[in-house]
Design a protein around this nucleic acid. Structure first.
Lengths: 182, 182
DNA sequence: ATAGTTACAGAACAAAGTGTCAGATAACTT
DNA sequence: AAGTTATCTGACACTTTGTTCTGTAACTAT
């Protein structure tokens, strides 16, 4: 990828994240981003069709870091030789905390819907093979519940309770959701 | 309240809900609502300052119906003589299903954030006194988890699994969340 | 019933944002 | 060194926004 392209893309991401600390997502205009990133109008549209596409691209960037391929279900075979499921969850929590500053503003406000939606897509793949087989409750419900609960746990954590450690958060989660820890 | 005011307010609500089935919330303009409701421009602004305020008002209207005062925690004393907590939950589920058509579009898309936020405010009051006292997990987390899980349960139900009865949904919920049923 | 109040329609308005397009310059690739 | 690609500046028509004005119709209270 062209250096110039990388540089501009990054400038847009940085401006976007910075602005989200001052304004809400819906109040944020493309014009604001252009001014903050100090780029030409057409340059923005050369990178992203809309504000929503920009947000989605940013989410993907973040989650590709938070969920490295060895943590995803598909590759779990290598991983599970070394560690339990709750270890995988704790790993994810550490990665989330690293990106805390970028993520915080995305949980709240109107962009939360898109951000949480993207987060859940990744989580579905993490939790998909962790459900017990026999239950009177539909599998679809249990998977949705495990995923949604974890996503909301992250939101609760970063919103106002970041004093807890990743290990503590993990224990809170497994104490509240019927998912085996290993 | 003035008849004319009620009538116009209702026309706006109706137009708004109707439009949400064709367009997403963020793509919806005040102009669209004005045209659909067939009212003057200044009339809209005489009722609501912004699109968001309109949405919030609609949410309040819906939830004041879904959560009648006798179901809310404050008034539980009268209620609990006759029925268990899971009965109260089932009552809520019936009310939700009644308003299904109005609610469905509000769960998804960009307005979901505001809608879910409003829903949770009501739910916090319903669940506040239903938590067990002694637990190693912080009370704040357990309350947030119970509320979020229930809100997401409703979303799951109406999104793609409305074939289940309120009683079934209630049983799925209590099977997955550590909250006493009575 | 009459007088006073309140809500609405219609139209006009400036201000701001949107998305696109052309031409010029600079940075990159081979 | 030549060709490609990304960016920049400026401009464009268009839509949306929120406000203000005037006249008219509907309501309320005495």
């Amino acid at each position: 990828m062209d250096r110039r392209r990388k540089k501009t893309r990054n400038a847009i991401f940085t401006a976007f994240t910075a602005l989200l600390e001052k304004k809400t997502y819906s109040a944020l205009t493309v014009q604001d981003i252009i001014d903050e990133a100090d780029i030409g109008r057409s340059t923005f549209y050369a990178h992203f069709e809309t504000k929503d596409e920009l947000l989605k691209a940013l989410c993907k960037d973040i989650f590709d870091h938070v969920f490295p391929s060895e943590i995803m279900s598909e590759e779990k075979h290598d991983f599970s030789h070394h560690s339990s499921f709750s270890d995988r969850i704790t790993h994810i929590l550490y990665h989330i905390r690293e990106k805390q500053q970028n993520i915080k503003g995305l949980f709240t406000g109107e962009c939360g819907e898109i951000f949480m939606g993207c987060l859940k897509e990744y989580l579905f793949r993490v939790f998909d093979d962790r459900l017990t087989e026999d239950s009177p409750v539909p599998r679809s419900y249990r998977l949705d519940h495990a995923v949604s609960s974890f996503a909301e746990t992250l939101r609760w954590w970063l919103r106002e309770h970041s004093e807890y450690s990743p290990e503590q958060i993990s224990s809170f989660y497994f104490a509240s959701v019927p998912i085996p820890k290993d």
